[in-house]
Design a protein around this nucleic acid. Structure first.
Length: 265
DNA sequence: ATGGTTGCCGTGCAA
């Protein structure tokens, strides 16, 4: 069977429930991983999402910030959420899908403005978060394991994952320190970057455009911050991948757009 | 070099 998975930093699930409906209409994902839902569990719109065809939901939210959720048309058999950097800030949710495929949804800290861990606690937190992810992945590694890691990783690792490699070398999300740590995470479990299996690294590819641009499409100063990775056991099962760029022009858009892959499982 | 916008919450903070 085909399994389509979407990941999206929705930047408030309550505000953008209609945009979620539109993603569902246009991409028909079986499973949707959301980041920055920005609501506590008691305010999470469970019934509205069930009505969109996703009765199986696992959400970890908090007031105002962060928060992740996994929505599914198909049942999942287990759920868990881990804490990182000794904080309870709702940046991870995991489920086990049919066939034993594990799906992990992450929201990596953005890291603030200054890329200096000594002067910026938020950047130090981001670096440490990425280090903990690498250690976790290395410990979890197992041969032939079928796992999927998605989310807003808040790092654009390749030169063509940003509008200007040179201009962003000292900008948070593309600094060598962040890229090195993301690469260490990727190597920990030999994760395959599913999007780059379909869009060659020579090609610019972005999933986020700042709200601050006057005309985001014209200036096109984007970054690829949202990722879908699969373990080597699933590489041969990848069938399609795409970035829903048009979502950036939907009414009251998120600054991130959905990323979607289809696997044969 | 600077400022630009958005969401949540409450008139600041994080992104």
């Amino acid at each position: 069977m085909q399994l389509t998975i979407a990941t999206w930093n929705i930047n408030s699930v309550r505000l953008r429930i209609d945009n979620l409906a539109r993603l569902i209409a246009e991409a028909s994902p079986d499973v949707i991983a959301l980041q920055e839902i920005k609501c506590p569990d008691e305010a999470y719109p469970r019934a509205a999402i069930a009505a969109l065809g996703y009765p199986h939901q696992y959400a970890r939210g908090m007031k105002g910030y962060n928060g992740v959720a996994i929505l599914s048309r198909l049942p999942f058999t287990a759920t868990h959420g881990l804490d990182w950097c000794e904080r309870q800030d709702c940046r991870h949710a995991a489920v086990k899908l049919a066939g034993g495929i594990e799906l992990h949804n992450f929201y990596v800290p953005a890291g603030g403005d200054r890329p200096d861990p000594a002067a910026n606690d938020k950047f130090a937190h981001k670096l440490r978060f990425l280090e903990e992810l690498a250690a976790w992945s290395k410990a979890e590694r197992a041969p032939r394991q079928r796992r999927i890691l998605v989310g807003d990783l808040n790092v654009a690792p390749l030169p063509n994952d940003v509008w200007s490699h040179k201009a962003l070398l000292d900008v948070v999300c593309h600094t060598p320190g962040e890229v090195d740590r993301l690469n260490a995470l990727q190597e920990a479990e030999s994760w395959v970057d599913a999007l780059r299996e379909f869009y060659p690294p020579e090609q610019k590819l972005f999933t986020w455009w700042s709200y601050r641009a006057q005309d985001w499409r014209a200036s096109d100063r984007g970054r690829r911050l949202d990722h879908i990775w699969v373990t080597p056991a699933l590489r041969g099962q990848l069938r399609a991948a795409r970035v829903c760029k048009d979502a950036r022009d939907w009414r009251q858009p998120s600054d991130h757009v959905p990323v979607v892959v289809t696997l044969e499982v």
